[in-house]
Design a protein around this nucleic acid. Sequence first.
DNA 1: TCTTAGATGCGCT
DNA 2: GCGCATCTAAGAA
Length: 202
Amino acid sequence: MTDTPFLPDFFLRPTLAVARGVLGALLVRDVPAGRLVGRIVETEAYLFNDPACHAVRMTLAGPEHCHTARNAAMFGPPGHAYVYFTYGNHFMLNIVTQPAGTPEAVLIRALEPLEGVGEMLHARPVDPRNLTNGPGKLTQALSIGTALNGHDLSLPPLRLVQGTPVPEDAIVAAPRIGITRATEWLYRFYERGNGWVSRPRS
DNA sequence: TCTTAGATGCGCT
DNA sequence: GCGCATCTAAGAA
């Protein structure tokens, strides 16, 4: 069960459907210290015509003005990783969706740790309850940085594999966190009642 | 338990 | 310079 990858077509579905569909999927990360596995419990969708997306300028000025070194991976093939650095400290992990040329992605916001918790705590020495309940936290716990930007998520050392999908009636849609534009769009999805979901700042 | 401010560095204007 | 798909420590209650 931890070895079934997603078929490429999965990432060609509408990005909002992918954001729901990867809830329950597993992220498998191989590091020298061992194998780390986390279950995805919270995501956000970012669309090409989305004011909060790094590639929104495509709609305004055309692709040639919005395709930059930073967001290049979002224009690449679906099912690959888009990793970027922000706030001077943190890496964000996204799954690229849509055909190459259409910059959309799904941000992984929280994981439920399943395997390798001891190794994760070594990479991120904090109270275990704060190990992977946020987008910057989980990348630190899994040692994910820009070296994995553009990486094919069907291959080691970072793979996305199928788990038990979260049923639709257990998925909550909510406003995205930490953005200043399009804050009313319900593009954040999480598993209802899961204790690893990040908490919005008030 | 909750709220606030500061850190930190890259990409853009 | 300013903003940022964030996190943490410190302080109040």
